[in-house]
Design a binder for these strands. Structure first.
Lengths: 142, 142
DNA sequence: ATAGTTGTAATAAGATGAATTACAACAAAC
DNA sequence: GTTTGTTGTAATTCATCTTATTACAACTAT
């Protein structure tokens, strides 16, 4: 199993805004064209990115812009803007409380699963849009 | 999004075997009773754990046993025994190759996503069944 | 040969992701 | 103040994946 493509899509959205919003109006249709993702999905993500205070979107007139400097936006921020904060690993729902293992399996694994999740997000928090745009601009120039 | 409960179930299975297989025959029905997971699901997992050389199961007569010392079995081993090795994060499938962002989004994120996955599994590889059984036995004694 | 168990296929039910259609709400510009 | 283009939002559908379930053949000790 794996995470959905929301993080990749949202990062794509923000990079498009970072690259183009100064020169042209970046509408949900523009972003849909670059990502090949349905405009309604894009709009819903734009709403979540607004809630997270990462962008602002002009209702009516259209177009989105970043509200923070690029080095203040990390992949972790983006993930939590567009995905629910669920546990990384699910549990089976009704382990038998009459069995010593069934009674304790949650207690044994909970904090270890949480820890694994935490180190992963620590890693994602080290990656900023700044770094991504810098690398992207290098790739574009060639 | 999140991982399935396979890791939690498989770990539960192995702890049941570790605790009880010396004294009694641990069949798929016994495990199904402790986990409250369907016996067929359990049997399929037992097959995968056999493929990974973590346990052996006696066809016909029944019962499973560990084939390795507990300190040689980690949560990472268990995960890869029962889950597919997919990328942690999915991508949107057809980013627009005519857009500089769409053309490069994969290149920008691939290695960073892989790295986040790797540190998570490094963390899981530090946790052995040995540690879990030790903690479990302490909980049981109380 | 019997009995209990594993191995395995086929099917169904439930949850979630993503696409799609449709339209009201909004704001600039004419 | 009406038109135009865009966003906000609801409702529905389709596909995929997880988990449960039924059914039965294959296996092995007794």
């Amino acid at each position: 199993m794996q995470f959905s493509s929301k993080l990749a899509i949202a990062t794509h959205i923000l990079l498009v805004i970072a690259e183009f919003s100064e020169k042209e109006k970046v509408t949900s249709d523009v972003i849909a064209g670059s990502t090949n993702v349905n405009p309604v999905i894009i709009r819903n993500m734009l709403l979540k990115l607004q809630d997270a205070k990462i962008i602002q979107t002009k209702a009516g007139v259209g177009g989105s812009e970043l509200t923070k400097p690029l080095n203040k936006i990390t992949l972790k921020d983006i993930f939590y803007a567009v995905e629910e904060d669920k546990d990384l690993f699910k549990f089976h729902s009704n382990p038998n409380e009459d069995c010593p293992v069934g009674r304790n399996i949650h207690k044994l694994l909970d904090k270890r699963f949480d820890n694994a999740k935490e180190v992963m997000f620590d890693e994602l928090s080290k990656i900023t849009l700044d770094q991504l745009k810098f690398e992207l601009d290098k790739l574009i120039k060639k």
